[in-house]
């Protein structure tokens, strides 16, 4: 991290995203702060409902109403884009910050040909002729490994397989050579071999172009093979963050430990898979203090106050009153927490 430039590609500070409902406000993202630098891949991990996808949509200003960013700032290369005019945000979207969605079957418009959907993305940001835009589309499709792109461009999305559609979606994200890509579980819906290929290609593309990448996933094994840094979210808050090697091998937060223990293949052969007891707190009724305390074997009276993020070793932070000792953590993952 010593090579990081002075201004990070993205800097999120104390982000608050709220969904007002009839029964109260859902604080889907509650004070999240982090940075991503050029060429860096950040894995954002959490179970569904942890607020990880909402974090991604908050950055781009693509929340479904009534959801909105209620506080904090999102600085893209130093520019606050939460406060930016809608027109400015539109200029950045797809051009400087691109997004890839979870379900490739749903991301492409079913009634428009692929060329229409790619050319419009180029021409929304560049004053180029249609044929120039088409050339760019062909080139990008080839870069993501689609054979005979000239012909495939004339197809409709339903004529592609799921994996191919996701490649097209990735190609659309890459069209304008963005500085940051936010990928929201893009390989979850695909089968494992295709997932592997796409992960490999994404990593290569980021390294070559210096694009920063935020990879949102619930799958720790994906993060292990792809990311430089990892950030674990639970109930709208970050609970642990650090380099992939540190967090996955020496997790300090009981939740991260439980998460690692529940990954098949993460434990030694013959050991029973671990399951974190209980359920995530209802988002409308979050407990005061540590949000993990009702599922945590180490919780005590201290946990009734919200712990702050603390740097336990260089660049490795966790939000816990009782962080587990680094050397014990790997064993705990096998034995269970409770």
């Amino acid at each position: 991290m010593t090579t990081a430039p002075s201004v990070p590609t993205l800097r999120v500070e104390n982000l608050q995203t709220h969904f007002p409902t009839r029964d109260g406000i859902i604080r889907a993202v509650d004070g999240v702060s982090f940075e991503v630098n050029a060429g860096e891949i950040l894995g954002l991990v959490g179970e569904s409902g942890s607020g990880k996808s909402i974090t991604g949509f908050s950055i781009l200003g693509l929340l479904d109403p009534p959801g909105h960013v209620a506080g904090g700032s999102v600085l893209f290369k130093g520019e606050d884009i939460v406060a930016a005019a809608p027109q400015r945000l539109r200029q950045l979207r797809g051009a400087r910050i691109a997004m890839i969605f979870q379900d490739p079957m749903m991301t492409l418009n079913p009634v428009l040909r692929v060329d229409t959907q790619m050319i419009e993305a180029v021409r929304a940001h560049n004053k180029v002729s249609e044929s120039a835009a088409r050339d760019r589309a062909i080139e990008t499709l080839r870069a993501v490994g689609i054979a005979a792109p000239e012909e495939r461009l004339k197809s409709y999305p339903h004529q592609f397989s799921g994996g191919m559609r996701q490649r097209v979606a990735i190609a659309i994200a890459l069209l304008n050579k963005p500085d940051l890509i936010i990928a929201d579980e893009p390989t979850t819906a695909l089968d494992v071999t295709i997932q592997g290929q796409i992960l490999y290609e994404m990593r290569k593309l980021c390294r070559e172009t210096g694009t920063a990448l935020i990879w949102i996933t619930h799958d720790l094994s994906v993060v292990a093979g792809l990311a430089d840094r990892v950030m674990v979210m639970y109930a709208g808050r970050i609970v642990e963050t650090g380099s992939v090697a540190e967090v996955l091998e020496q997790p300090r937060h009981p939740y991260t430990i439980g998460l690692i223990g529940s990954v098949p293949g993460g434990t030694a052969r013959g050991h029973k898979l671990f399951q974190i007891p209980g359920m995530a707190p209802p988002p409308l009724n979050l407990p005061p203090g540590c949000r993990f305390k009702n599922r945590c074997g180490f919780a005590d009276a201290a946990c009734d106050t919200m712990p702050e993020m603390a740097e336990l070793s260089p660049a490795h932070w966790a939000r816990c009153h009782h962080p587990r000792p680094a050397q014990l953590a790997a064993n705990l993952a096998e034995g269970g927490v409770a």
Binding site: L60, L62, D64, R90, Q91, L92, R93, G94, A95, A98, M99, F101, Q102, D103, M106, T107, L108, N109, P110, V111, L112, E120, A121, A124, H125, A169, I172
Partner: peptide, 27 residues
């Protein structure tokens, strides 16, 4: 308007006019 492809069209930075006039209207 709740479909992912509409959100994706917005994520591409298309103008609201194109999102509504082409992506939503055609469907």
């Amino acid at each position: 308007m709740l479909m992912d492809y509409v959100k994706f069209a917005r994520a591409k930075g298309l103008s609201e006019r194109r999102v509504i006039g082409v992506h939503i209207l055609k469907n």
